[in-house]
Amino acid sequence: MTEAILKHRVGLLDAVPRGEGRVFEVAGQRLAVFRTHGDQVFATQEHCPHLGGPLADGLIDRGTVICPLHDRTYDLRSGAGVNTECQVRTYPASVGADGAIVVEVGQD
């Protein structure tokens, strides 16, 4: 069985301030959605795999997010750990023409 990828419009771009993250509920699961100063958007799993820190509360730049609890840092595109063995799940995210954030979430 192939995995179905569904695109979800999770909210308006302006719901997330530049350089910050917010938690959204998408298809029954919570994701951390980030917006950079360049208005790019990224989506990752909600919690840090290390000890469950809220990633949406982390500091970000144009490519990484730092978990606020213990500074575990992840690449926003790939989810790979920068200073840790842990890695996070990422979801393709983009901004639609109408200003909505679109996140692709797979469904089994």
Binding site: R9, V23, F24, E25
Partner: peptide, 14 residues
């Protein structure tokens, strides 16, 4: 906000 309540413009999920 702990979770942002999605305010949708236009249609829902594609």
């Amino acid at each position: 906000a702990d979770v942002v309540q999605a305010e949708m413009v236009g249609g829902g999920d594609d």
